[in-house]
Nucleic acid binder design. Structure first.
Lengths: 229, 229
DNA sequence: CCTATGTTTTTGGTCGGACCAAAATACTCT
DNA sequence: AGAGTATTTTGGTCCGACCAAAAACATAGG
């Protein structure tokens, strides 16, 4: 058996996909939708709620829901809530962190093998920005993330940057509690440089190991912070 | 500003996390929840709908919603709808498939380096089941997936088996349209054997390459199928 | 005592109408 | 034309009602 709102959901999904409801434009008013689709307000609201949870609509209370054509980023934000639950479980943060380590190791290896001139230039720029921010911890944090982000770009698959954003948003709450200092910045910068050098020298194993160690060291710090909180 | 249902959602989330609403047990009736939380049915239903979309409740029409404590599998099913949208876009299936190839390559390498006796035994068993099913295409398909599944187990991180399930559920619609025959089964079996042998010989590069080629070959078949449909 | 069948109650899905406060719009007056 | 005000529209919430399916109960038959 199907719910009446399911039909409406499909209908609206279709109109979003076909562009009849345009990206970033507000959805028609609920009472108009009732009229258009011959449905009761209950059903209309239910459909809107479902679509909002799916990430196809962005609905702030009291405002017209805004149409959002989904991308890989949408997937991540839609899963955010569940992930947060899982992070609360024992080992949750660890599992997620370890998965990140696994992926980034592979990305580093891939970069060492396949990065082209532009990729190298991007890495170099990210590293330089990193260096510039050594004495400005908040900015260093940003450039740190950016450096890692370049690795996710190099595979040229839109899924990976989305994964990176996911890791950042999910892990940064734990991350944020971490002690940070200019000493740490320097350690991290040096680790980044090591990764960069390995990629430059086209040494996949070295790149992998450098990244692995980099994240492992950072993990020790995060772990201590987690246990003391 | 916050909606009334948001409070209820948080309240119920809490009771699920604390076990007050037990895993796999039905939620109390809507009218009881109204009573318990002093909310109108509208708000209660909205909260239920939200939680269902989040994956914390499993709600079939006309049946009491069943409480589901989230795991990594929940994340995948919750994202299913959005992913389907993205697969409809040009390059969607390709991007997803390529990401799978990337991950599995890395898993194969990891297995070659770190698989223990039990892992090897599991792989061997999966390969044998594979062989047994050579002349039974549907069953071969199953054992094929299982063989790949073992690779996702070896990293000993619950996130990876969930990812595997995700790939299967998202890609199998395209996959299902693919031509299948005992000839293909044999090719795939031989590819699996090559991967297994490489892992057995602790040759990460060989394992990686074997897996990469295996999926690349399969991709050609899938791609042709997609283009002709 | 247990199973099978029929009856009553409960429950989820849907509808329509109503009210409020905030947002959007129309309309002043300067 | 711009600023400030009145009006309409709109999303959020509540209520009560009805239906059909599910669940619970009761009853008859073995």
């Amino acid at each position: 058996m199907r719910r009446a709102s399911d039909d409406l959901v499909a209908e609206i999904e279709g109109r979003i996909a076909s562009g009849q409801f345009e990206h970033n434009k507000p959805l028609p008013a609920e009472r108009d939708l009732m009229d258009t689709f011959g449905a009761s307000r209950t059903v209309v609201r239910e459909a809107i709620s479902t679509l909002a949870n799916r990430g196809l609509l962005e609905s702030k209370p009291r405002f017209r829901p805004v149409v959002k054509k989904p991308d890989y980023g949408t997937v991540l934000t839609a899963t955010g809530n569940i992930i947060e639950h899982l992070l609360g479980e024992p080992g949750g943060v660890s599992d997620l962190y370890k998965s990140r380590e696994f992926i980034e190791r592979s990305l580093a290896r891939h970069a060492a093998l396949h990065a082209n001139k532009d990729d190298i230039a991007d890495l170099k720029a990210a590293l330089a920005a990193n260096y510039e921010a050594l004495d400005d911890t908040p900015r260093f944090f940003q450039t740190d993330m950016d450096f890692h982000g370049v690795l996710y770009e190099i595979v040229r698959n839109p899924i990976f940057p989305a994964i990176h954003k996911g890791y950042l948003s999910w892990l940064s709450p734990s991350w944020g509690k971490m002690n940070r200092s200019e000493d740490h910045n320097l350690i991290n910068y040096q680790a980044h440089k090591k990764i960069y050098d390995a990629i430059l020298e086209r040494d996949p194993t070295q790149a992998e190991d450098a990244l692995s160690e980099h994240l492992a060291v950072a993990w020790e710090v995060v772990k201590d912070t987690l246990e003391n909180n």
